[in-house]
Simulated assay, not measured.
Amino acid sequence: MNSPAMLAIGSTLLCGVLGVAGIHTYASGKAQRAALLDRLAITGPHETGRPRRFTGIDRRLRKTALGKRIQLKLAVTGLDLTPGEFFVYMVAGVAALWMIASSVLAPFFGPIAGLVALWAANTFLNWQRQKRIEKFINQLPDLSRILANATAAGLALRTALGMAAEELEAPAGEELALVTSQLMVGRSIDDALGELSERLPSRELVVLVTTLVLSNQAGGAVVGSLRNLTETLEERKETRREVRTMLSEVNATAYTIPMLGLGALLMMNSITPGSLERTTGSTIGQGAVILALGLYTLGFIVIRRLGKIEV
């Protein structure tokens, strides 16, 4: 057999071996990726070891834009939920409120109750996020004090952040542990702290991060700055508590007014059974109900705006 034939046979065999190896590598990588997704779906973002529900839905939902948005919101709330679990619970809540409103009030109120359930789910996530931010802000004086003491003892800022992550409780401990992990894999202090301030936005955290970043870049009396910042944060903490107490009545009023409207509907329907169904059976009645709901919503938004004061 001549040399060109041997070369062709050798090339064919080599291509076949490389093709088989490539297919095997692709299949192995795909299997590892699927196993990783399954493990993430089971353990969840907090790795509590709790058995996860709806793993199939969660795996498919994470590939969509809606799933990614839900995952980002859940990541900053501290909730031990996967996007699939939250999505299933939200859909179940929408269906339950839809059926309850349709049966208790009138079929016209079913879609409205479904929209209210969607709004309530999004509001719940925003409330949990704000609650976590408030708790983190209350821990900032302790964080600043720990960093000041560690820096005064001659420790580097990276080491001081690690100590604070071990000593502080959640959410500050969890967030600083994430910052420490990012620093260990090579991220700069500026990027890690900047991402922290984006996850939990607040004026107090921005001031602390700016102080740490500038001190890390230009040097200087970081201990004195942190001690002064600790006193300032303590004063702001007390001020925020006083303002929140003064505005608690206003915030309660914002939620009481819509509940009064719902109570009026229930009372009307209980006094005269079927009155809401007859009212919403005509175009004029539906328009009047929508107008009333719009006015209640406007009042809720206006009162919430009046009771929202940034300190």
Rank of each mutant, 00 (worst) to 15 (best):
V209W: 07
I189S: 02
E234L: 13
L140Y: 04
I133F: 09
V222D: 00
E204D: 13
R129V: 01
A121D: 01
S181C: 03
A150E: 00
L143P: 02
R132L: 02
E167R: 14
W119V: 10
L233K: 05
A177V: 04
A156D: 13
S181N: 14
A156H: 13
A177T: 11
I133E: 04
L214E: 09
D142F: 11
A120C: 07
L168H: 05
K131C: 07
G219W: 07
V222K: 00
E234Q: 14
V223W: 04
S225K: 05
R240Q: 11
S144Y: 03
A170I: 06
Q182L: 10
L247M: 15
R227E: 10
N126R: 14
T210F: 06
M246A: 10
D142W: 06
A192D: 01
Q139E: 15
G219T: 07
N149Y: 01
D142M: 15
L226R: 04
R241L: 11
A121L: 02
P141C: 07
V179P: 02
E167T: 14
R145A: 15
G154D: 13
N228K: 08
S225R: 05
L161H: 03
A165H: 02
A148T: 00
R158I: 09
L155P: 04
L147W: 00
E235D: 12
A221C: 03
Q128F: 10
S202D: 07
A153Y: 02
V179M: 01
A218I: 13
L147Q: 01
M184T: 12
R145K: 14
S197C: 10
G220W: 08
V207A: 13
L208I: 04
N138R: 14
E174G: 04
A192K: 00
K237L: 09
E167L: 15
K135H: 13
A164V: 04
G154N: 10
E238D: 09
R203Y: 09
V243M: 15
A177G: 08
V213F: 09
V250C: 12
R158E: 11
K237T: 13
A160S: 11
R244S: 14
T245P: 01
S248A: 15
E134Q: 14
I146A: 03
E175S: 08
A177F: 08
V207C: 05
L247Y: 12
S215V: 02
Q130I: 03
G194L: 06
L208N: 01
L226S: 05
R241H: 03
V222S: 03
N149W: 00
G173Q: 02
V213L: 12
A177Q: 11
S225Q: 09
R199M: 01
V185T: 12
Q130W: 06
M163Q: 13
R158H: 13
R158Q: 13
N138V: 09
R236L: 15
G220T: 08
A150N: 00
A150Q: 01
R187W: 09
N149G: 01
D190E: 15
Q217K: 14
R187I: 01
V206M: 10
S215G: 14
A150S: 04
L229P: 00
W127Q: 12
S202G: 09
F124P: 00
A192P: 01
